[in-house]
Simulated scan of single mutants.
Amino acid sequence: MFIKNNIIVLSKIKYSESDLIIKAYSREQGIISYILKGILKQKKGKLRASHFQLLSQLAVESNHKPNRQLQSIKDARLNYFYKSIHTNVFKASIIIFLSEMLSSVIKEEEPNEALYDFLVTSFQWFDHQDEFANFHLLFLVKLTKYLGCYPDVSNIEAPFFSMSKGVFTDEEQDVYSISDNNLTILKQLLGTNFEAINSIQLSAQQRQSFLNMFLLYFELHLGDFKKPKSLEVFKQVFS
């Protein structure tokens, strides 16, 4: 079956001397994996290895075969050309970290157009920014909305937040309740958007503390979640 898909590359691994295996999230079908045979040695043709960088946004044509784990791509073109996220060392570190996060938490084999559109617009916005230190924090908070574990903000003025229940509470609930500076940051992030993110002033230490806390939130709500292997390198880049 000949199929056209709009995809975002979540991960890629080298397979043999010249092949790549790509895991992607598509607007039309959810998670799809592709094998790109010979692409690492290919000098001519429609497919280029440079098109399949992490979080690249592509329109692909494939000969889709049901029940096959790895599909093959016949043609691909960029839907959007990134200007900075793969060349700026700090942005590239964020991209590596977030792509690993997305590869871990997105399991859907069914389409979710709202999630796909969120990813597309978020990364295009990120690509144009000169100040982006808080981007990954707000991105992760907003991502929970599409994973079914967005914090309940109906009682957001309360002095505690129960990470295990995902609600703001008037009293400490358990060992996963927070009431420190991370609570203030969470409230700030829940009350803003990307356009206003730079108004939140945080130190590198505060960002790392909040990130550690929010990764625990992912662990509590997504049973098979594992912290990205790139986390330590990511922290070192921004320390």
Results as ranks from 00 to 15, higher is better:
residue 161 F to S: 03
residue 169 T to H: 00
residue 175 V to Q: 15
residue 153 V to H: 09
residue 157 E to Q: 12
residue 212 N to C: 13
residue 171 E to P: 00
residue 146 Y to C: 07
residue 190 L to I: 07
residue 154 S to K: 10
residue 149 C to T: 07
residue 144 T to P: 02
residue 182 N to Q: 12
residue 156 I to E: 03
residue 140 L to A: 05
residue 210 F to A: 05
residue 174 D to Q: 06
residue 189 L to V: 06
residue 182 N to K: 08
residue 195 E to I: 12
residue 155 N to L: 14
residue 178 I to R: 03
residue 192 T to Y: 04
residue 191 G to W: 00
residue 164 S to I: 10
residue 184 T to M: 15
residue 190 L to P: 01
residue 217 Y to E: 03
residue 147 L to A: 07
residue 197 I to Q: 03
residue 211 L to T: 08
residue 170 D to W: 10
residue 170 D to I: 10
residue 142 K to F: 12
residue 184 T to S: 14
residue 186 L to F: 01
residue 176 Y to F: 13
residue 142 K to I: 09
residue 157 E to P: 04
residue 181 N to L: 14
residue 225 F to T: 02
residue 177 S to E: 02
residue 222 L to T: 06
residue 189 L to Q: 02
residue 205 Q to P: 04
residue 157 E to F: 09
residue 143 L to P: 01
residue 204 A to C: 12
residue 159 P to N: 06
residue 161 F to M: 01
residue 153 V to C: 15
residue 207 R to H: 07
residue 222 L to V: 11
residue 198 N to Q: 10
residue 194 F to P: 03
residue 200 I to E: 03
residue 173 Q to P: 05
residue 199 S to W: 12
residue 156 I to K: 04
residue 224 D to S: 13
residue 147 L to M: 08
residue 196 A to R: 13
residue 210 F to H: 04
residue 164 S to A: 14
residue 162 S to M: 02
residue 154 S to N: 14
residue 152 D to C: 09
residue 199 S to D: 14
residue 203 S to C: 08
residue 162 S to N: 05
residue 211 L to F: 05
residue 206 Q to E: 15
residue 156 I to S: 09
residue 178 I to H: 01
residue 162 S to V: 02
residue 166 G to T: 02
residue 173 Q to E: 12
residue 154 S to V: 10
residue 224 D to K: 13
residue 215 L to R: 05
residue 195 E to G: 14
residue 222 L to K: 08
residue 175 V to C: 12
residue 211 L to W: 04
residue 199 S to T: 14
residue 177 S to D: 02
residue 140 L to E: 06
residue 147 L to Q: 05
residue 173 Q to A: 12
residue 181 N to K: 15
residue 161 F to C: 00
residue 223 G to S: 15
residue 191 G to E: 08
residue 193 N to K: 09
residue 163 M to H: 00
residue 141 V to A: 00
residue 205 Q to A: 15
residue 206 Q to H: 05
residue 224 D to Y: 13
residue 149 C to D: 00
residue 143 L to T: 05
residue 211 L to N: 01
